[in-house]
């Protein structure tokens, strides 16, 4: 239960961090919040030879908006800061709503947005949120930077599109269009535990209250954040309607997610939870969109 020996470097600029990665490649591992990495090292499931600690890079800890209205969040921004930040609450309410479900306050005090996204745990909240809000993920290497849409970034169990010489530096969350509603719901046995099932929903209505666009993403429901594309199509073109909700929940929970089951919830129960949570989340998301629609009439 003690980590194997490793070398440790704490760069004081992003450039220095990138050149260390360039030099050491896959031998080096980035240390962000450490709340997933250090347990894995304590268990010796991971034995990196070099840790590159990003905790001194203040340039990666920021929350601001750009001229296009995107919310830009630095990779080293800790969950706890996201939880209480006014810009996040206003411009990324779905992200805001999900943060209290991430582990315990002691973990949120250290864990970072970038760390969680790169770790890509299928049971984690933030990859699901990233997909639901269409977050654009900016990664950088010595060679330059590239921006990856979330839908391409996540590539399965603990796997992403990031290369060993790249660092995730920033996440851009596009501003929601008018009449957008959202909801995040999960069920865990105890506050802070891994959820048995969870869902993030984001829907946009037209001026008459008909759903223009829907996005449903599930956690702990497969080998990554699981988007239910067919369920979304059932909702699109429909007004707020219980039958449409039920059809979408049925489609997503029975056909589109692929839960693995675990000691606390078998596959059938996970599908049941997905169904129930979908109905609850859709109800809340449509209510919120309707409130927004009322204000815009």
């Amino acid at each position: 239960m003690k980590p194997a020996a490793f070398e440790y470097i704490v760069p004081d600029s992003l450039e220095q961090a990138l050149s260390i990665l360039q030099e050491h490649g896959e031998e080096a591992k980035i240390l962000a919040g450490g709340q997933s990495l250090v347990p894995a090292m304590n268990f010796r499931m991971l034995q990196p030879t070099l840790l590159v600690d990003l905790n001194k890079l203040e340039e990666l800890d920021h929350i601001r908006r750009n001229e296009a209205g995107d919310l830009l969040v630095g990779a080293m921004t800790r969950h706890r800061r996201l939880e209480f930040d006014n810009l996040v609450a206003q411009y990324a309410p779905l992200l805001h709503e999900s943060i209290p479900s991430i582990a315990h306050p002691q973990i949120r005090n250290r864990g970072t947005l970038g760390g969680s996204l790169v770790h890509a745990d299928p049971a984690a909240e933030l990859p699901v949120i990233a997909l639901a809000v269409d977050a654009q993920i900016k990664v950088q290497s010595i060679g330059g930077e590239r921006t990856i849409p979330s839908v391409e970034f996540f590539q399965g169990m603990f796997t992403t599109d990031i290369n060993p010489d790249e660092i995730l530096v920033e996440v851009a969350i596009p501003e929601s269009s008018a009449r957008t509603g959202w909801a995040f719901k999960e069920i865990a046995r105890r506050a802070g535990d891994y959820a048995m099932m969870g869902i993030a929903v984001r829907i946009t209505l037209d001026e008459d209250g008909v759903c223009e666009k829907a996005c449903l993403v599930y956690l702990n429901a497969g080998d990554g954040p699981m988007e239910a594309v067919e369920a979304a199509k059932i909702l699109e073109g429909q007004p707020r309607d219980d039958q449409a909700f039920e059809a979408a929940a049925e489609k997503a929970s029975q056909d589109e997610i692929d839960p693995l089951g675990n000691m606390h919830a078998n596959v059938d129960f996970q599908r049941h939870l997905a169904n129930v949570l979908t109905l609850r989340a859709l109800d809340l998301a449509f209510q919120r969109a309707d409130v927004d629609r009322g204000e815009n009439l």
Partner: peptide, 11 residues
Amino acid sequence: AVRSCLTFAVQ
């Protein structure tokens, strides 16, 4: 409040 088992002393 943080977990001292998930932080290295060097940090």
